[in-house]
């Protein structure tokens, strides 16, 4: 009784209560995000394996080794390839879809929910599904394509086609996510803008180019940046379908981090952390540059 009245009198001071309110969340973020973030940099300078028996300081050796590691550069190149094609495709498809489904008729609402469905599903299940559909022998879609006159393609097992197949699979799964963001933005455009454009004699396409696009630049920028960050971290769908193969053609930075740290001897956590640090640096550079670009776009459009 006494202690509970003490607690409530303590809680009567808003400022003191505030610290109690934020304490659990801040502690979790501190222990499980901030400290690991800082230690990534520390671990990247250590020679340490997954069994953590011994750790010796080796300075920047991992980074020097990375520069001469062909597998690292291969993973880097593949990640860049994936990002360069996946992001524009995802944005283009979702923009087209968003323009159609942003009006609130019953049919369009249904189409909107249906197109978002793949994003609700795990990439693991989706990876399994597509590796069946694209199988050279028993794949239904491989069969459909041969009926259209194409040769029997091996998709995920073909060094040339594996990455394009993974890219299309990812666009298929993720475009609904970007579409939802863009629909929310399109719906905030005042109808009067379109009316004014119509009075000026602008057709649908002109309205799209001169009213819709400029009005959703912030949301578009956000979509491009988040899609790029997601693409630079691509892992799940590759882990399930190709495991980085064939011939390392779908090995990306994160699959390479996972493999060198957890999957193949000598389970080199130090080296894997060094690659993580490099990945963070790439992501920061790319997203900050993009952010700058879109901010400048916004301010020139707002004139």
């Amino acid at each position: 009784m006494k202690s509970s009245s003490k607690v409530s009198s303590f809680l009567n001071k808003p400022e003191r209560a505030a610290y109690l309110f934020i304490a659990p969340a801040i502690l979790v973020l501190l222990i499980f995000m901030f400290i690991p973030l800082v230690s990534t940099i520390a671990v990247s300078t250590l020679r340490m394996d997954v069994f953590m028996q011994s750790a010796t300081f080796i300075g920047l050796d991992h980074f020097i080794r990375m520069m001469g590691d062909g597998k690292f550069w291969n993973a880097f190149g593949n990640t860049a390839y994936f990002t360069a094609f996946e992001v524009p495709l995802q944005i283009a498809v979702s923009l087209l879809a968003a323009v159609y489904v942003s009006r609130n008729t019953r049919l369009r609402k249904f189409v909107r929910s249906a197109l978002f469905l793949p994003f609700v599903c795990s990439l693991t299940a989706i990876g399994i599904m597509w590796s069946f559909l694209l199988d050279p022998q028993i794949g239904l879609y491989t069969e459909y394509l041969t009926r259209l006159g194409l040769p029997r393609l091996a998709f995920l097992r073909d060094p040339q086609l594996a990455m394009p197949a993974v890219i299309l699979m990812t666009v298929w799964r993720n475009f609904g996510y970007t579409m939802v963001i863009l629909v929310a933005a399109v719906q905030t455009i005042p109808a009067s803008y379109y009316e004014a454009a119509q009075l000026d004699g602008a057709g649908k396409f002109r309205q799209f180019a001169n009213v819709t696009i400029p009005s959703i630049v912030p949301a578009l920028g956000f979509s491009v940046i988040t899609a790029t960050i997601m693409a630079l971290q691509v892992f799940d769908q590759i882990f399930v379908t190709t495991q980085g193969g064939p011939l390392g053609k779908t090995e990306t930075l994160v699959t390479y981090i996972y493999k060198s740290g957890f999957q193949t001897a000598p389970y080199d956590l130090g080296y894997a952390s060094a690659i993580s640090v490099m990945t963070l640096i790439f992501i920061m550079i790319v997203s900050l540059t993009m952010n700058r670009y879109f901010q400048s776009k916004e301010s020139t459009d707002a004139r």
Partner: peptide, 13 residues
Amino acid sequence: IPFQVMMIPLFVQ
């Protein structure tokens, strides 16, 4: 901050 960047120390922790 992407999760992949802190996953190894998190595992260690």
